[in-house]
Protein backbone atom coordinates (compact mmCIF):
# COMPACT_ATOMS: atom_id res chain seq x y z
CA UNK A 1 0.00 0.00 0.00
CA UNK A 2 2.56 2.56 1.12
CA UNK A 3 6.27 2.82 0.52
CA UNK A 4 6.72 -0.86 1.05
CA UNK A 5 6.32 -0.58 4.81
CA UNK A 6 4.73 -3.85 5.82
CA UNK A 7 3.45 -2.68 9.18
CA UNK A 8 1.54 0.22 7.70
CA UNK A 9 0.24 -1.84 4.78
CA UNK A 10 -1.03 -4.33 7.32
CA UNK A 11 -2.64 -1.62 9.46
CA UNK A 12 -4.37 -0.21 6.38
CA UNK A 13 -5.68 -3.63 5.40
CA UNK A 14 -6.95 -4.49 8.87
CA UNK A 15 -8.55 -1.10 9.55
CA UNK A 16 -12.17 -1.99 10.39
CA UNK A 17 -15.04 -0.63 8.31
CA UNK A 18 -16.93 2.16 10.12
CA UNK A 19 -19.96 1.01 12.10
CA UNK A 20 -23.44 2.46 11.79
CA UNK A 21 -25.46 3.53 14.83
CA UNK A 22 -28.55 1.55 15.81
CA UNK A 23 -31.20 4.05 16.82
CA UNK A 24 -32.37 3.40 20.36
CA UNK A 25 -36.14 3.50 20.74
CA UNK A 26 -36.52 2.51 24.37
CA UNK A 27 -37.46 6.02 25.56
CA UNK A 28 -39.31 9.15 24.42
CA UNK A 29 -36.64 11.41 25.89
CA UNK A 30 -34.74 12.44 22.76
CA UNK A 31 -31.50 13.42 24.51
CA UNK A 32 -31.47 10.16 26.46
CA UNK A 33 -32.19 8.30 23.22
CA UNK A 34 -29.17 9.94 21.59
CA UNK A 35 -26.99 9.05 24.55
CA UNK A 36 -28.16 5.42 24.57
CA UNK A 37 -27.60 5.19 20.82
CA UNK A 38 -24.08 6.55 21.27
CA UNK A 39 -23.30 4.16 24.14
CA UNK A 40 -24.51 1.20 22.11
CA UNK A 41 -22.28 2.31 19.23
CA UNK A 42 -19.27 2.75 21.53
CA UNK A 43 -19.82 -0.70 23.00
CA UNK A 44 -19.77 -2.27 19.52
CA UNK A 45 -16.79 -0.13 18.52
CA UNK A 46 -14.94 -1.45 21.56
CA UNK A 47 -15.60 -5.01 20.48
CA UNK A 48 -14.23 -4.23 17.02
CA UNK A 49 -11.27 -2.37 18.55
CA UNK A 50 -10.25 -5.38 20.63
CA UNK A 51 -10.31 -7.56 17.52
CA UNK A 52 -8.34 -4.90 15.64
CA UNK A 53 -5.69 -4.62 18.38
CA UNK A 54 -4.96 -8.33 18.10
CA UNK A 55 -3.98 -7.77 14.49
CA UNK A 56 -1.47 -4.97 15.12
CA UNK A 57 1.95 -6.46 14.40
CA UNK A 58 3.53 -7.36 17.74
CA UNK A 59 0.42 -7.08 19.90
CA UNK A 60 -0.32 -10.78 20.10
CA UNK A 61 3.27 -11.40 21.20
CA UNK A 62 2.63 -9.43 24.40
CA UNK A 63 1.63 -11.19 27.59
CA UNK A 64 -2.11 -11.40 28.17
CA UNK A 65 -1.70 -9.10 31.18
CA UNK A 66 0.01 -6.44 29.04
CA UNK A 67 -2.55 -6.80 26.25
CA UNK A 68 -5.29 -6.17 28.80
CA UNK A 69 -3.45 -3.24 30.41
CA UNK A 70 -2.76 -1.48 27.11
CA UNK A 71 -6.36 -1.83 26.00
CA UNK A 72 -7.71 -0.74 29.37
CA UNK A 73 -5.69 2.46 29.32
CA UNK A 74 -5.65 3.20 25.59
CA UNK A 75 -9.05 2.19 24.24
CA UNK A 76 -10.67 5.63 24.40
CA UNK A 77 -7.68 7.27 22.70
CA UNK A 78 -7.80 4.72 19.88
CA UNK A 79 -11.56 5.20 19.44
CA UNK A 80 -11.30 9.01 19.46
CA UNK A 81 -8.69 9.04 16.69
CA UNK A 82 -11.43 7.59 14.50
CA UNK A 83 -14.11 10.06 15.62
CA UNK A 84 -11.82 13.08 15.17
CA UNK A 85 -10.74 11.82 11.73
CA UNK A 86 -14.34 11.33 10.59
CA UNK A 87 -15.38 14.71 11.99
CA UNK A 88 -12.95 16.68 9.83
CA UNK A 89 -14.74 19.11 7.59
CA UNK A 90 -18.17 18.16 8.97
CA UNK A 91 -20.81 20.84 8.43
CA UNK A 92 -21.81 22.85 11.54
CA UNK A 93 -18.73 21.45 13.31
CA UNK A 94 -20.55 18.24 14.13
CA UNK A 95 -18.92 15.27 15.75
CA UNK A 96 -19.29 12.33 13.41
CA UNK A 97 -19.55 9.26 15.64
CA UNK A 98 -20.99 7.32 12.71
CA UNK A 99 -22.31 8.21 9.26
CA UNK A 100 -25.80 8.19 10.77
CA UNK A 101 -24.87 9.63 14.17
CA UNK A 102 -23.67 13.21 13.82
CA UNK A 103 -24.02 15.51 16.82
CA UNK A 104 -23.62 19.27 16.76
CA UNK A 105 -22.75 21.37 19.76
CA UNK A 106 -26.37 21.92 20.84
CA UNK A 107 -27.17 18.21 20.62
CA UNK A 108 -24.07 17.33 22.62
CA UNK A 109 -24.97 19.89 25.26
CA UNK A 110 -28.55 18.54 25.50
CA UNK A 111 -27.15 15.02 25.89
CA UNK A 112 -24.74 16.04 28.65
CA UNK A 113 -21.72 15.74 26.39
CA UNK A 114 -20.73 19.41 26.24
CA UNK A 115 -17.31 18.65 27.71
CA UNK A 116 -16.70 15.83 25.23
CA UNK A 117 -17.78 18.10 22.38
CA UNK A 118 -15.35 20.86 23.27
CA UNK A 119 -12.44 18.47 23.74
CA UNK A 120 -13.12 16.52 20.55
CA UNK A 121 -13.54 19.62 18.39
CA UNK A 122 -10.15 20.81 19.61
CA UNK A 123 -8.61 17.47 18.61
CA UNK A 124 -10.45 17.45 15.28
CA UNK A 125 -9.20 20.96 14.46
CA UNK A 126 -5.66 19.88 15.28
CA UNK A 127 -5.86 16.84 12.97
CA UNK A 128 -7.47 18.96 10.28
CA UNK A 129 -4.63 21.47 10.43
CA UNK A 130 -2.08 18.65 10.23
CA UNK A 131 -3.76 17.23 7.10
CA UNK A 132 -3.20 13.67 8.23
CA UNK A 133 -3.13 10.95 5.61
CA UNK A 134 -5.07 7.69 6.16
CA UNK A 135 -1.74 5.92 6.69
CA UNK A 136 -0.80 8.40 9.39
CA UNK A 137 -4.18 7.97 11.06
CA UNK A 138 -3.92 4.17 11.35
CA UNK A 139 -0.36 4.51 12.65
CA UNK A 140 -1.39 7.16 15.15
CA UNK A 141 -4.19 4.91 16.40
CA UNK A 142 -1.85 1.95 16.90
CA UNK A 143 0.74 4.17 18.59
CA UNK A 144 -1.87 5.59 20.95
CA UNK A 145 -2.63 2.07 22.12
CA UNK A 146 1.02 1.03 22.36
CA UNK A 147 1.92 4.23 24.20
CA UNK A 148 -0.94 4.13 26.69
CA UNK A 149 1.41 4.07 29.71
CA UNK A 150 -0.33 1.20 31.44
CA UNK A 151 1.09 0.55 34.87
CA UNK A 152 2.53 -1.81 35.97
CA UNK A 153 3.90 -3.42 32.82
CA UNK A 154 4.30 -7.19 32.97
CA UNK A 155 7.08 -7.55 30.34
CA UNK A 156 8.60 -4.08 29.73
CA UNK A 157 10.94 -5.32 27.00
CA UNK A 158 8.12 -6.74 24.89
CA UNK A 159 6.04 -3.58 25.24
CA UNK A 160 9.09 -1.50 24.31
CA UNK A 161 9.66 -3.66 21.22
CA UNK A 162 6.02 -3.27 20.25
CA UNK A 163 6.32 0.52 20.55
CA UNK A 164 9.63 0.58 18.66
CA UNK A 165 8.11 -1.40 15.79
CA UNK A 166 5.37 1.18 15.36
CA UNK A 167 7.78 4.08 15.72
CA UNK A 168 9.97 2.60 12.98
CA UNK A 169 6.92 2.26 10.77
CA UNK A 170 6.11 5.93 11.31
CA UNK A 171 9.67 6.94 10.52
CA UNK A 172 9.62 4.82 7.35
CA UNK A 173 6.35 6.42 6.34
CA UNK A 174 7.64 9.94 6.84
CA UNK A 175 11.11 9.28 5.38
CA UNK A 176 10.00 10.15 1.87
CA UNK A 177 8.31 13.41 2.82
CA UNK A 178 10.25 16.60 2.40
CA UNK A 179 9.14 17.71 5.84
CA UNK A 180 11.60 16.27 8.32
CA UNK A 181 9.54 17.43 11.26
CA UNK A 182 6.48 15.44 10.30
CA UNK A 183 7.03 12.37 12.50
CA UNK A 184 7.81 14.58 15.47
CA UNK A 185 4.69 16.63 14.91
CA UNK A 186 2.56 13.50 14.85
CA UNK A 187 4.11 12.27 18.09
CA UNK A 188 3.59 15.69 19.63
CA UNK A 189 -0.15 15.40 18.97
CA UNK A 190 -0.39 12.42 21.34
CA UNK A 191 -0.69 14.47 24.56
CA UNK A 192 -3.80 16.23 23.25
CA UNK A 193 -5.29 12.85 22.36
CA UNK A 194 -4.59 11.57 25.90
CA UNK A 195 -6.14 14.68 27.40
CA UNK A 196 -9.21 14.40 25.16
CA UNK A 197 -9.70 10.74 26.01
CA UNK A 198 -9.46 11.48 29.73
CA UNK A 199 -12.14 14.13 29.43
CA UNK A 200 -14.31 11.75 27.41
CA UNK A 201 -14.03 9.01 30.03
CA UNK A 202 -14.87 11.45 32.83
CA UNK A 203 -17.85 12.72 30.83
CA UNK A 204 -19.28 9.21 30.33
CA UNK A 205 -18.66 8.20 33.94
CA UNK A 206 -20.43 11.36 35.13
CA UNK A 207 -23.41 10.61 32.92
CA UNK A 208 -23.52 7.00 34.04
CA UNK A 209 -23.53 8.00 37.71
CA UNK A 210 -25.52 11.21 37.49
CA UNK A 211 -28.23 10.30 35.00
CA UNK A 212 -28.03 6.64 35.91
CA UNK A 213 -27.66 5.71 32.29
CA UNK A 214 -27.41 1.95 32.00
CA UNK A 215 -24.30 1.04 30.05
CA UNK A 216 -23.47 -2.12 28.16
CA UNK A 217 -21.27 -4.52 30.07
CA UNK A 218 -18.13 -4.23 27.97
CA UNK A 219 -18.26 -0.41 27.88
CA UNK A 220 -18.85 -0.28 31.63
CA UNK A 221 -16.02 -2.70 32.29
CA UNK A 222 -13.62 -0.58 30.23
CA UNK A 223 -14.78 2.68 31.81
CA UNK A 224 -14.39 1.10 35.24
CA UNK A 225 -10.82 0.13 34.40
CA UNK A 226 -10.09 3.85 34.13
Amino acid sequence: VVLGNKVISHLMLTEPAPLAANQDDSTNDSSLRTLLTLCDLLNRELLVLIGWAKQIPGFSGLSLVDQMSLLQSGWMEALLVGVAWRSQGAPREELVFAGNLRLDEAQCRATGLADLYEALRHLTAKYEAMKLSPEEVVTLKAMALANSDADPVDCPDSVQQFQDGLHEALQDLEATRRDQNRAGRILMSLPLLRQTADRAVQNFLRLHRGRRVALHKLLLEMLDAK
Partner: peptide, 20 residues
Protein backbone atom coordinates in the same frame (compact mmCIF):
# COMPACT_ATOMS: atom_id res chain seq x y z
CA UNK B 1 -9.07 -10.89 35.96
CA UNK B 2 -12.51 -11.53 37.43
CA UNK B 3 -13.23 -7.80 37.36
CA UNK B 4 -12.26 -7.50 33.70
CA UNK B 5 -13.62 -10.79 32.54
CA UNK B 6 -15.18 -9.72 29.24
CA UNK B 7 -11.92 -8.20 27.96
CA UNK B 8 -10.05 -11.24 29.23
CA UNK B 9 -12.43 -13.59 27.41
CA UNK B 10 -12.26 -11.58 24.19
CA UNK B 11 -8.47 -11.55 24.19
CA UNK B 12 -8.28 -15.24 24.88
CA UNK B 13 -10.49 -15.81 21.87
CA UNK B 14 -12.82 -17.80 24.02
CA UNK B 15 -15.17 -19.99 22.05
CA UNK B 16 -17.81 -19.71 24.74
CA UNK B 17 -20.29 -16.92 24.07
CA UNK B 18 -19.32 -13.61 25.62
CA UNK B 19 -22.11 -11.70 27.31
CA UNK B 20 -21.60 -8.10 26.25
Amino acid sequence: KEKHKILHQLLQNSTSPVDL
